[in-house]
Amino acid sequence: MNLQVLQQLGMSERDITLYLALFQLGPSSIRDIASHTGINRGTTYEALKQMAARGLISYAPKGKRRFFRAEEPDKLLELAEEKRASLEQTIDSLKTEIIPGLHHLKPEFSSGNVRFYEGDDGIEFVLKDILATVGKLEEKTYSVFSTKSIRHHLYRPFPNYTAQRIKQKINVRVIALGEGGEDAEYSERKWLKTDGQVDASYIAIYPPKVAMISMASENYPVATVIESPDIARAQQVVFEALWRFL
């Protein structure tokens, strides 16, 4: 019986220990509960008082002492359903009021619209951002300029990126600078011949953002993400013109 899931209801490990002890002991005094669990009386009393306020336990006087007992475990399901209802209201409020309101407060463009990321963790964040952003679009498609020399570094921190993209049915069109590249579902690829090797680079156009990834050193990728509908639109125009040409 995995009682650790009760932490999702706001119960600490100490609360769970005391709660379980009440089922094992039956109606008990603070002294007996503290002795059984090894938790000092003061802490035991405060924890029991909080659980009583939530309806998980109750107590009754017996002589000069209080005897505590656990309520029926169905109360746990009741608390979980209350929490779910509250969370659903929070999600609805985030979608309809809070997030739109915060977006409205943002200036049209600021330094916050340009973000920099470094290393494998940074590249993984950018790749996940591409999937999350494109996944919300009505037409789940984005465009990429990519060189052969960056591909090894690009997917190293997120090796199942392509599988995740396919799972979400996200389309990608790639203009490969130089040879190489593998075909996959929900993807199209065209090649642009170059004179010699092009430095490692990757540009993803996923409105309203453009991500540019390159190598700061031999094994250290860096990325710049610009969030600007105008810049993304301009990059998309260039991509579409070149795509038709190839």
Rank of each mutant, 00 (worst) to 15 (best):
R31Q: 13
A85R: 12
G10M: 05
K62Q: 15
G122V: 10
S201M: 15
P27Y: 06
G112P: 05
S58C: 09
M212W: 03
Y117G: 00
Q7H: 09
P207M: 04
T194Q: 08
L18F: 06
P157C: 04
E108T: 13
A163C: 03
P159M: 08
V225D: 01
D129S: 11
S86R: 14
Q236T: 09
Y19T: 08
G180P: 05
Q235P: 00
E188W: 06
H152W: 11
L192W: 08
Y206N: 07
S214R: 10
G196N: 10
P107E: 09
P221M: 07
Y161R: 06
P107Q: 03
F239N: 09
Q235R: 11
V144G: 06
E78A: 08
R41T: 12
S201L: 13
K128G: 04
H152L: 14
L20K: 13
Q8V: 09
T96N: 14
F145A: 05
I123K: 03
V172D: 00
S149E: 15
L18K: 06
A47Y: 04
P208Q: 03
D183F: 13
N160D: 15
F158C: 08
R173S: 13
S35L: 12
L25A: 11
R189M: 12
A211N: 03
D121E: 15
F67M: 13
A47V: 12
I170D: 01
F109Q: 02
I33N: 04
L102M: 13
V198R: 02
G180C: 08
K128L: 10
A241Q: 12
L22P: 02
D195I: 13
Y186N: 11
I39G: 02
A184M: 10
P221R: 06
E78Q: 14
A184Q: 12
Y19Q: 08
V114W: 03
D121L: 13
E182G: 11
I98L: 15
Y206H: 14
D32G: 02
N160R: 12
G101H: 05
V222I: 15
K193Y: 10
E13V: 07
G119P: 06
Y220M: 09
G196A: 08
N219Q: 12
V210C: 02
Y155P: 00
V174R: 11
D230N: 13
I98W: 07
L246G: 05
E138F: 05
K62P: 00
V5Y: 06
L192Y: 12
A232I: 02
Q89G: 09
I57N: 04
V134C: 02
M11Q: 08
G180I: 09
P27G: 06
L137G: 07
S29Q: 07
L56I: 09
G10N: 05
L105C: 09
R115F: 01
D74L: 14
S187N: 01
R151E: 15
A232L: 04
Y206A: 00
L79Q: 07
S217P: 03
S228L: 00
T37G: 09
